[in-house]
Design a protein around this nucleic acid. Sequence first.
DNA 1: AGAGGTACCTGGCAGC
DNA 2: TGCTGCCAGGTACCTC
Length: 275
Amino acid sequence: MPELPEVETTRRGLLPSVRGRNVEALVIREPRLRWPIPRNLAAKLVGRHIHDIRRRGKYLLFDCSTQAGSAHLLVHLGMTGTLRIVDPGTPPGRHDHVDVRLSDTLQLRFNDPRRFGAMLWVEGKVEHHPLLAKLGVEPLSEAFDAEYLFRQSRSRRVAIKQFIMDSHVVTGVGNIYANEALFAAGIHPARLAGRISLARLALLTKAIRGTLERAIKAGGSSIRDYVGGDGKPGYFQLDYRVYGRAGMACSRCSLPIRVLRQGQRSTFYCTKCQT
DNA sequence: AGAGGTACCTGGCAGC
DNA sequence: TGCTGCCAGGTACCTC
């Protein structure tokens, strides 16, 4: 569920409290995430100064660099992960795997029931890290436009939905927003990526950007829930036009929304509005 | 090289 | 009520 908007909202929510703080202590209760949390993470992290939090795709990068060199705490929220600020006195609950203590009154808490998330330590140029080096363009950057998608897609015989969910093409477009953006652009999700005109890809890039930006905006208004909240992860309740609406009436033409499987993932679409 | 499938994990729900 | 089985989702990695 944390798609790009949730990750970006987390970043913005945490930044004012976290930037400029020093890491006082690290508690790891459960190191078994997507990859094990490095055993020496505490040794690396404690005492570090957090200069900034950046985002690349759905990865959060806590910049802990010193004059001695570049160093980052890399965090991925996976599917069910949250990072919240709690009072250090707050007893840990189920799936509260990691605490990063920043002061007497401030503690970052990582919770992730399914443990698809990640917490790694990266020294050296963070953009050269294997997980980040091959990522595609940021969907909210100027580099993401119709010409880019057109160029990238010409040789591809894959469905457009799977194409825009490929993080090596464009980062951060998950299942929900892929469905919504394709509906907004009027493109059938099974259409082959390499066969779509530049003009239609222009509609699609606009739809992806617009959908993500709207979600970030919606998240911004509920940011207090996300950071230091009551345990509710604060996933955005956007009113989806197609996602999860199989059998319900299309908001545009009233025909029932259909569902199909693409790459083991559910795709929702309208047969009349998406061609 | 591209496409397709698999694994990882838990909570929630449907069906028996 | 309790069991089983399936689904959700991101993404690296495997195989063809």
